[in-house]
Design a binder for these strands. Structure first.
Lengths: 342, 342
DNA sequence: CTGTTAGCGCCTTCAA
DNA sequence: TTGAAGGCGCTAACAG
């Protein structure tokens, strides 16, 4: 009997194991672990000691099955975690979920609607308590809570085309208008627009903002200066270059997202035209760039936090399920200027 | 009887509901859904029709409970999703998990070891199949699989101090040596070092690489040029400025991570000294910066993918649980030069 | 205060 | 090929 090494079994012990070890009934273990006050101190001690010795960990899955309670999981389905935008959003969601001891289950669709459909299906099968999704397409039928037995769904950055879905969007219109206005205020009258696909809601909103600013300045929208850019890398740079090579090129450009902004920046830098540039979405470290850059900035984490809040509200039975809500995250126009020796 | 609207009940139907609807036994439903071949085509049809009508979705949690099988979840615990580094890593993990129809559960410790402990505990209670963790501290006892009933654990970007833990690290030493060597090759002999806390493994490795390069060039390490930088923002800039204000300032600097690199860049740009700069970690869009920048780049997603692969290997009983493995992701030195009109 | 019984939703095992 | 019984780990609901 020379000091047998206390080996921890590799299989997870169950409540019964703990009960047997502590020589009590499983119910006493259950109550103790749940903090039920009607357990005598001695019993509690015995149980906790056994839990400690066996390194017991309650099986939350089985628990959830019996209590019928929530899984404590939020699904988060995005179109591309590689984009820092979505990771910041995920951070926001995680933060709010963590406050309630909930976890976030990730899903990346890479912009594929079929993948989105099966991801949502999978998450539903896993009985997540709700889903936050950045829809990849415009057909949202598979995201309708009605088709998901009432599973709460919140859209992020796009408005829903089905009822009973809360959403958080960015002030695409206002931000674009303000940024375009700031270019106008600098005296630019010919401003190119590097837009997104016309089927994207954010794309049309940002174009609306751009047009609104021009009209408010009494300027007509010149279709020759409007370009739609496929989301492939490099396409934005090509489109920007094409604008710069027009007979009567724009003196400034507004890019509808950060990819387009970067592409336009490259085209302008290479052409050496000094064309002014503004773009939607913040660009990190743009203050280190060689030329000035104006961006429409907003708190991306806030998008995630608000989306999570909307979801949590839906989960709270007390709040009652009122009508769908739509939250808008405000934007601000920010101009980066190159650092330099004073 | 005027066309009653087909209302989908808001509560999730169970297998029994489907069975009752299809007028078969629950077992037939179960077998059908699992693709058991010994179900007659007619039965299969009846079942699938009922599933369709009721929008039934099998409860994976209950299923897992009975089969004793895995939850199909991987835990991913990082120290700060806000850092694009970790989100790219998450993308890699997600990609590999998705190949096996597994999902990723996120946890953010914000560098807090206590939070890490409770996150791991929570994930274990949720019966994830394994955990990938970027440890916040140097005490790894709570991450020991032996303390977690054999739950597989993989460390990312830091080597484990407990046995039986696989890990994926970056070639901190080699990358730092190469980057420092490239500065030396440009003729610099006084090279400042902006390091991390000395308790961080990556910090000491990167310092080792820096020193090795100097020694290989026959140069002595000047302690006056070595700074440790707290991870607060702005501290790196202050430290870099201090170096620049030395009586005999360095003509180049090597920064041990991207935060330090950016801080040093700012300090140098403000001082206008034209000091050369290299840093560990890639800096996105550095080609748009006003001055050249050399970085130690590596495939961050690869860190996540390899970590996930190690974990999946451990889960595969066929692979057998050999000794702990340590994978190193290679680095490359990349120099960004400002764009300009040709 | 503690223990017993029953069952959450599903699947393994055995019988028909 | 289908169904009935039993149990995965846990906890409500009821005893005692």
């Amino acid at each position: 009997m020379g000091g047998s090494v206390s080996t921890v079994p590799s299989a997870s012990p169950t409540m019964r194991d703990v009960a047997a070890f502590a020589e009590v009934s499983p119910m006493t273990v259950s109550r103790t672990l749940r903090g039920d006050p009607r357990v005598s101190p001695e019993m509690r001690q015995r149980v906790l000691a056994a839990v400690e010795t066996l390194r017991y960990r309650r099986n939350d899955l089985a628990r959830g099955l019996r209590t019928g309670r929530s899984s404590g999981l939020l699904g988060l389905v995005v179109t591309g975690l590689g984009n820092p935008f979505y990771s910041e959003m995920a951070l926001g969601v995680e933060a709010l979920a963590a406050e309630r001891d909930m976890r976030v289950v990730l899903g990346d669709t890479a912009g594929d609607v079929d993948r989105e459909r099966q991801l949502v299906d999978d998450l539903a099968s896993r009985r997540v308590d709700g889903i936050i999704v950045v829809p990849a397409g415009n057909d949202h039928r598979h995201l309708d809570p009605a088709a998901l037995h009432g599973l709460p769904v919140v859209f992020a950055t796009r408005p829903p085309s089905v009822p009973d879905v809360d959403c958080v969007v960015v002030d695409d219109f206002g931000g674009s208008r303000a940024a375009t206005a700031s270019l106008l205020a600098e005296g630019h009258e010919r401003i190119g627009f590097l837009g997104l696909g016309r089927s994207l809601w954010t794309g049309t909103e940002r174009l609306r903002g751009y047009c609104a600013a021009l009209e408010e300045a009494g300027l007509a929208v010149d279709d020759a200066l409007l370009r739609s850019v496929a989301s492939t890398s490099g396409a934005a740079e090509d489109a920007a270059r094409a604008l710069l090579q027009l007979p009567d090129p724009p003196t400034a450009m507004f890019a509808a997202n950060n990819r387009n902004t970067v592409g336009a920046y490259r085209a302008i830098a290479r052409a050496g035209t000094g064309t002014a540039l503004a773009g939607f979405d913040d660009v990190p470290l743009a203050d280190l760039f060689a030329s000035p850059l104006t961006v429409v900035a907003y708190d991306v984490g806030e998008v995630g936090r608000r989306a999570a809040q909307l979801l949590l509200d839906r989960l709270d039975p007390a709040a009652g399920s009122g009508h769908a809500r739509m939250l808008t995250v405000p934007t601000s126009v920010k101009t980066y200027r190159p650092l330099g020796g004073s």
